[in-house]
Design a protein around this nucleic acid. Structure first.
Lengths: 212, 212
DNA sequence: TAGTGTGAATGGATTCACAGCC
DNA sequence: GGCTGTGAATCCATTCACACTA
């Protein structure tokens, strides 16, 4: 089975499994059952077994899954068994916070360059990595080539997002994580994942309203 | 039909519709068809009509939907036709960026209090709102009562997240937006929505690996 | 006994097809 | 002609039930 055949909801859960497995290994656990994983993540044991069965047979009946082995396998599926060079566009509040976020590096994503078109910001180092200087957006193609960058984080205002996306794809970037509150479109050579923080609060507002 | 009967995927799309409608109204448009909305969001026109039909009949055949009216209706469904008071726990990089994020206020979410247990930070004002001073986590119940706060944003390290969540629910908070990279559990009186930034990059990494 | 892997059944969401309206 | 609203059909994900194994 090709990994692209794994249903999208299952791929999302794989990330959660990996996160939980990392916690378990930290606690020196060696194996885990689908039931235990399910309890920790509020999912059914059956669903976890189905998800894991998409890519082979790992578990040992009566025992469960080998944590180390399973982590390795999930990382390979997700493509995080290697390091990805990442660039960031947008050096505002959100962009700077994202650049300082330790969670990315822990998963093998390495921030290599930061871009912004504000003349006030160009040329300045970013607080989290003083070796990285903010460069103008027109430099993106150079950086992508030089540093072999495949992924980009977009944290610019909504009105600038599509233009930035076009520039990124034109420069050869293959994946965009979009934080701008607007839907962006790219050619089939690239993928986009969107995170709209306000949308998340709206979803919460809906849920809270529903349970009252 | 009760709004809690709307399927979860549809509720998520409602947020996207609302965002797009806001853009359209900005551009002085009065009406929009399901087809136009679908093109903008990469969804089928049928799906949009189905979603909107969950809560009544809005569209005019031959014309489309009245943008203003539809926005009002979606806001009521999502619960954003009023202002929500929000508190933030965690005054690190991510927390401070979230406090400065303009998108929340634009949607009617008002930040009222910020908490952190780092003695270095307690008592200091936050840059985005100099009138808000960072308070210790034990003050949460007081603030919730005083300011009638129902929603909380959690931006603390993973190991602290469940404890903070327990404190929040105990204080009467009804909804939690969790940025900590760990699954948190609460009683049925409260709702949790999770955003794990590293997970989002992993999903992107998967998609990019799949299209190579 | 404790647990996996999986075909079959179920449940939900999306898409199709089309009647009806402006 | 353009567009909505919706039952029917399809598609897909989750759950059930159970054979199987360490």
């Amino acid at each position: 089975m090709k990994s692209s055949d794994i249903p999208a909801p299952a791929v999302h859960r794989l990330s959660l499994y990996l996160r939980e497995l990392e916690n378990l290994r930290q606690a020196d656990r060696r194996t885990v059952s689908s039931r235990q994983l399910g309890d920790a993540l509020k999912l059914t044991a059956t669903q976890i077994r189905k998800d894991l069965a998409y890519f082979g047979q790992f578990g040992k009946p009566g025992i469960g899954y080998d944590i180390e082995a399973l982590m390795g396998r999930i990382r390979r599926i997700l493509g995080t068994d290697r390091t990805w060079n990442v660039l960031l566009v947008g050096a505002g509040n959100l962009g700077m916070a994202l650049s300082a976020y330790r969670g990315f590096a822990k998963k093998g994503f390495r921030l290599c360059a930061v871009f912004d078109d504000d003349p006030e910001k160009i040329g300045r180092p970013i607080p989290a990595f003083p070796a990285i200087f903010i460069r103008p957006v027109c430099d993106i193609p150079i950086a992508v080539r030089e540093k072999d960058i495949r992924l980009a984080i977009v944290a610019v205002p909504a009105h600038a997002a599509q233009g930035v996306a076009d520039a990124l794809v034109g420069a050869g970037v293959r994946g965009i994580l979009n934080f701008a509150p607007v839907s962006i479109h790219v050619t089939a050579t690239a993928a986009v994942t969107a995170v709209d923080l306000a949308v998340q609060l709206e979803q919460l507002s809906f849920q809270v309203s529903a349970l009252e």
